[in-house]
Simulated assay, not measured.
Amino acid sequence: MQLFRCPRTHGPHLERRYLLRWRWAAQTERADHFLEHPPEVPLLRWEDELPEPCVVHPEEVDTYPWAEDDTLPAALIARIDAWDDARTAEGGRDAPNYQGALSIPPGWRVGGFPSWASTGPMDITCASCRAPMRLLLTAGGDEMDPDSHSWMPLEDRDLSQQGIASIRGGQSVTEPTRLRFGRDRDLHVFTCPTDPGHPPQWVLS
């Protein structure tokens, strides 16, 4: 699967345009071919319109649903909220919490659950057949943040510090792709489980 993003904004609301392409793995080129000769690009208004050439090194992790509205049973959400409140009372605002440290990692990820930090949970249905759509990919500008205690690699974290001060390496570590989506939101790519040929949906949250 290839995800394309136009480096320019479009329309009165400065919208981004994306394109999803499915390809046979045997017919695709090696990733290092694309990194050897990056394409020439026109002068862009903002630095974060052009990605930094880099390679993704995936690792498998367990994730859990966003805890809001009916994403989980109400009684369980109440227990999670009480646990978060107790952690905050004990450790302050930098204490680990369910949403940031236990449920959904920041950054780029395949599958799992969407984060609904900006919009609240949404029902995403296919425009062609009305089937509930599945999360295929999430693209995020930051690979770590002060809440990502469980997801931050130990080599990038100063254990003697708390919050954002604990992140080592600066912007090249926290924002390796140099891309931003919306106002520092996550770009969720949803596809139809009934027919992958149906148009995907792009959700900023």
Score class of each variant (00 low, 15 high):
residue 67 A to V: 06
residue 63 T to N: 01
residue 5 R to C: 09
residue 186 D to C: 06
residue 189 V to Q: 02
residue 1 M to E: 08
residue 44 L to A: 07
residue 181 F to G: 04
residue 140 G to V: 05
residue 203 V to Y: 09
residue 184 D to V: 09
residue 27 Q to A: 14
residue 135 L to P: 04
residue 4 F to R: 07
residue 81 D to Y: 07
residue 5 R to T: 10
residue 153 P to E: 04
residue 155 E to T: 04
residue 151 W to R: 05
residue 52 E to H: 14
residue 127 A to E: 08
residue 128 S to H: 03
residue 92 G to Y: 13
residue 37 H to I: 10
residue 159 L to E: 01
residue 111 G to F: 05
residue 144 M to W: 07
residue 110 V to R: 13
residue 189 V to K: 03
residue 86 A to K: 11
residue 128 S to A: 15
residue 158 D to V: 08
residue 136 L to S: 07
residue 140 G to C: 08
residue 14 L to A: 13
residue 39 P to M: 04
residue 118 S to H: 15
residue 129 C to N: 00
residue 32 D to Y: 12
residue 10 H to C: 04
residue 85 D to R: 15
residue 174 T to D: 00
residue 40 E to F: 02
residue 198 H to T: 05
residue 16 R to C: 06
residue 164 I to D: 09
residue 9 T to F: 13
residue 84 D to A: 14
residue 90 E to M: 07
residue 6 C to K: 04
residue 169 G to H: 00
residue 56 V to T: 07
residue 140 G to S: 05
residue 130 R to W: 02
residue 52 E to Y: 09
residue 4 F to W: 15
residue 24 W to R: 14
residue 79 R to P: 00
residue 57 H to G: 01
residue 69 D to G: 01
residue 80 I to S: 12
residue 127 A to M: 03
residue 200 P to Y: 02
residue 170 G to K: 00
residue 1 M to Q: 13
residue 77 I to P: 00
residue 138 T to V: 13
residue 120 G to K: 12
residue 27 Q to M: 10
